[in-house]
Amino acid sequence: MNKVTDEQLMEAVQRDKLDQLNVLFERYQKRIYNYFLKSTGDVEESADLTQAVFIRVLKYRKSYRSGSAFEFWIFQIARNQVKDHFRKLKVYKDQFTDLQTIPDVEESDEYALQSERERRLQLAMNQLPPDKRELLVLAKFQNMKYEDIANLRSASVSAIKVQVHRTIQQLRAYYFEQED
């Protein structure tokens, strides 16, 4: 049996079959939450932003264009949330120096090393401007295709590709700076 597509579910939500939003929530909550977590580095804020995205989907269900890609639509809403978040902060650098905002990973021997690497990675990411950090999250953590990112950012695929290259280059520098 074919799986019901996201778009079919969203069209049902539009017709006030609100239970279908629970299915979309199951499919997307982890991705959206981790998108926020990597973009903002803040656990509580990420939870608030995630719930706000689904509440917007609910509230503005009638504005979803039937047939258009749901993933694109929900990430558009999520991106606007991130932009709002940074607009409110009005600070573009060094706002994540408090490491307690990064989720703690169980410090058993097995995880300790990877945990340390991830902590350093998050610190390096926090040094990137929000725009580049978000690009990295979409391309490398959400594994979104360059075509989809280009569409989301109204840019060409080649431009996105170059930006991703440069961002990784910058990330590498920040990541290894911490060793020195």
Binding site: N22, T50, Q51, L121, F141, I168, L171, Y175
Partner: peptide, 27 residues
């Protein structure tokens, strides 16, 4: 290679349960 490996091995966090409660309440 090292940076890309950390990214690849980086795990997604589980969202807190409170998000589900809030969304269900909104629905």
């Amino acid at each position: 290679c090292a940076v890309l490996q950390v990214i690849t091995e980086s795990k997604d966090e589980e969202p807190p349960q409170s998000i589900r409660w809030e969304v269900e309440a909104a629905i």
